[in-house]
Design a protein around this nucleic acid. Structure first.
Length: 492
RNA sequence: GCCCCCAUCGUCUAGGGGCCUAGGACAUCGCCCUCUCACGGCGAAGACAGGGGUUCGAAUCCCCUUGGGGGUACCA
């Protein structure tokens, strides 16, 4: 069997969104599974909307996800160039060829005229299609039209009988009626640029793409493309149309559903491994028991046969959960490398890290690891470890530090801390128990106020871990600070 | 309007005629662990869109309806 060649062909009109990433992933997995070639091609023929910056962002996003391409921008390859804007001569060549063969023709109808006719067809209950009126223009007529200043487009002289069947690897055979569904669509716009349907065929054929794996939104365009393959005598690739990704309201996923940009997810602290794993499950599943897949496993197990046909709703909660799973699986060293930038940006840690600071940071991370779901969470959940002027959460202070004995409890702990040889559970618990009896309270009633005093919140790692991490000096100064705050606010 | 695709718990899915009193995961709820929050463990609730067929037998096959999605551009 010949080498599998697939491609991902984004248009650089914005960031890489979740849907595009999933399409890229499926292509990539398919290529790696079959030891094939993954091609990246930039579809930038829409000059008005395409930008270099957007191209770079897409490249960055693919890189972040680990979807490396074998041919394409930066990498190069034997079937370049990989930017459509640099392939204009090719489209011209094939358009000329089709004209010569009589399979394409110039059309001088204006957008306004076409629109009007479309409206009319709709009113009549007919399918909207180009009526072919420019198909047999004489040379004189063309000259007249040109003299009027009209710029022609080039249209395909499509087959107007029979049907075109798409043999889809996921959906089976899908039949389209040539008479009503495949019209003489535009190949080359009046500004000389190729349309998507034309460029995609020329490029996929020339780049020897064997499997076209793309979103279902392209299924309806496929018969048009097939007619082009046939007119140009190009071998037909196999097609696989994967289901769309929807928002919670079942509408196509878009910006209005919140973050959809892969790089935004990255910034929020989603791990590439979690993104890839979650995305792989959108429209694909393996068996009835497994949801966590490593990348090698995905490569091994991914097949188009197991791609589902129905659209999938993007469930951010499941992604978050999965991200937590991957965070918990990280080594402390790895976790630290990923957390460091967040802490540095928050001003918690300097650019230069001493071994002591690194060790402290890692000890904190060990405690935080099971408590965060996004890397960005390390900022809020660790601020009191790095700031001595940590804020007090007002409602928590009100609720917990206004209870009876608060001052005595804190003072008791203050004294006890001085005596303890080490701030750990072994040494402190017995002392706290003495306090419990002294005040006639439960352990929680001693620990909660202490937690609030030390952290400003009622949520933190285990109290003995917090005490140990902070150390005797800080614990005492924080108790003093809290007592002062309470007195100032006249809460005790 | 016309055409195409799709239809299992709230969500992602397993299921490809009998193994299904429909399995798993997220979310939800309860219990356990426990100094809070997580993590972890145990458990509960929760679906074959509706109607016709085919068949000894249908979540699985066919048809219709309904619902959702997509296409219908000199966007990609």
């Amino acid at each position: 069997m010949s080498t599998v060649r697939v491609r991902f062909a984004p248009s650089p009109t914005g960031y890489l969104h979740v849907g595009g990433a999933r399409t890229a992933l499926f292509n990539w997995l398919f290529a790696r599974h079959h030891h094939g070639v993954f091609v990246l091609r930039i579809e930038d023929t829409d000059l008005a909307r395409s930008t270099d910056a957007a191209t770079q962002v897409i490249l960055d996003a693919l890189q972040f996800l680990g979807l490396d391409w074998d041919e394409g921008p930066v990498k190069g390859g034997d079937f370049g160039p990989y930017y459509q804007s640099q392939r204009l001569d090719l489209y011209q060549e094939y358009a000329a060829k089709l004209m010569e063969m009589g399979r394409a023709y110039e059309c001088f109808c204006t957008p306004e005229e076409l629109d009007q006719r479309r409206q009319e067809q709709m009113k009549q209950g007919q399918a909207t299609r180009y009526d072919g009126r420019c198909r047999h223009l004489s040379d004189e007529e063309k000259e007249d039209l040109r003299a009027q200043g009209r710029l022609p487009v080039i249209r395909l002289a499509s087959l107007d009988e029979g049907e075109t069947v798409v043999h889809d690897l996921i959906r089976g055979d899908v039949t389209f009626d040539n008479t009503t569904q495949v019209d003489d669509f535009v190949l080359v716009k009046s500004d000389g640029m190729p349309t998507y349907n034309f460029a995609v065929v020329v490029d996929d054929a020339l780049m020897k793409i064997t499997h076209v794996i793309r979103g279902e939104d392209h299924l309806s365009n496929t018969p048009k493309q097939i007619q082009l393959y046939q007119a140009l005598d190009f071998p037909l690739p196999k097609f696989a149309h994967i289901p769309m990704i929807l928002g919670p309201d079942k509408a196509l996923l878009s910006k209005r559903h919140g973050a959809t940009s892969v790089m935004q997810f990255h910034e929020d602290g989603y791990l590439a491994e979690a993104m890839v794993n979650y995305l792989s499950l959108l429209g694909w599943g393996y068996d009835d028991s497994q949801t966590i897949f490593s990348v090698p496993e995905l490569i091994e197990k991914f097949t188009l046969e197991r791609v589902s046909k129905n659209p999938a709703v993007f469930d951010i909660q499941k992604l978050e959960w999965m991200n937590g799973v991957y965070i918990r699986a990280l080594s402390v060293e790895d976790l630290y490398e990923r957390a460091l930038p967040y802490w540095q940006r928050a001003g918690f840690l300097p650019e230069e890290i001493t071994p002591e600071v690194k060790e402290y940071a890692q000890r904190i991370l060990k405690e935080l690891q099971s408590r965060i779901r996004l890397m960005a969470d390390v900022v809020e959940s660790a601020q009191y470890f790095f700031m001595d002027d940590y804020p007090y959460q007002p409602d928590v202070v009100q609720k917990i530090l206004t209870k009876p004995h608060t001052e005595e409890i804190l003072q008791y702990v203050y004294e006890v801390i001085k005596e303890a040889p080490q701030l750990n559970e072994e040494h402190l618990k017995p002392l706290f128990q003495v306090g419990m009896e002294k005040f006639g309270i439960k352990m929680g009633e001693l620990i909660q106020p202490l937690r609030v005093a030390l952290t400003g919140t009622n949520v933190s790692p285990g109290i003995y871990d917090v005490l140990e991490l902070l150390g005797s000096e800080k614990v005492r100064s924080r108790i003093e600070r809290t007592l002062a705050m309470l007195k100032e606010k006249e809460l005790i």
